[in-house]
Amino acid sequence: MKEPILRVEGITVRFGGLVALKEVTFSVEEGELLGIIGPNGAGKTTLFNTITGAVSPEKGRIYFQGKDITSLPPHKRARLGIARTFQNLRLFSRLTVEDNIKLAMGLPYPAFAPLFSLPSYHKMEKQMSESAIALLKTFHLYPYRDRIASALPYGERKRLEIARALALKPKLLLLDEPTAGLSHQEAISLMEELKELRKGFSLTIILIEHNMRVVMGYCGRLITLNYGEIIAEGTPEEIANNPAVLQAYLGEESLC
């Protein structure tokens, strides 16, 4: 059997007395679009933070493409190909749109190259600009390229964050509520764009989402978290009819 791209084994995260994640185990196959749902405070974002390395787990291991990454610092995980977006946007707000994208491309020449205006510097900067422009065009952000990021409308900022994550050339993309705050129309068009990208970039995507129409329509498989535990896993139809999920979302009485 093929090694899954991401394997999370028995992850437990504790913040003081609060258990944020408890023995969470799941794996993601390459090319999959996995949705994570659950009520507020269920540990969804903590799970992302653990996968990207911002939070270190008390127990358990994380494997990316078969490699144990549990103790790798965040920037090394990003370089391996794990990119993410944030629930409440973390753009570099005083930098231009184009620079936001270029930043994610690493340092393709020695740091002293610009000091002496070496040819490698000019060549690589040109290449970076070209791929940044290509990415901006894909996300319909090209007209904004010289504006500073904080001057963009909200929907464009959300798209810029996804474009920035893709500039890392990731294999696994973690999206934290990509459609939150967007109108239904915008949400659908964003999901359609992501569907196209998934083919183009051969991406695996995990997304946290509250918009059930998006989740049900686009995700192949769903995981439901509640109080830090996985309470259900399956296709959207299975999840929609799972009594444990309904109970978590609507409370006990709704079942009576």
Binding site: T52, A54, P73, P74, H75, K76, A78, R79, A83, R84, F86, R90, L91, F92, S93, R94, L95, D99, K102, L103, A104, M105, G106, L107, P108, Y109, A111, A113, P114, L115, S117, Y121, E125, M128, R164, L168
Partner: peptide, 28 residues
Amino acid sequence: ALLKSQPGRILLSIREDEIASQMMGIDV
């Protein structure tokens, strides 16, 4: 020269948001 090239952009990104620049693969 540093400011207008990639090393400078990286330093600016650390000023703007350290956590986000880590997530962009930058060794802060």
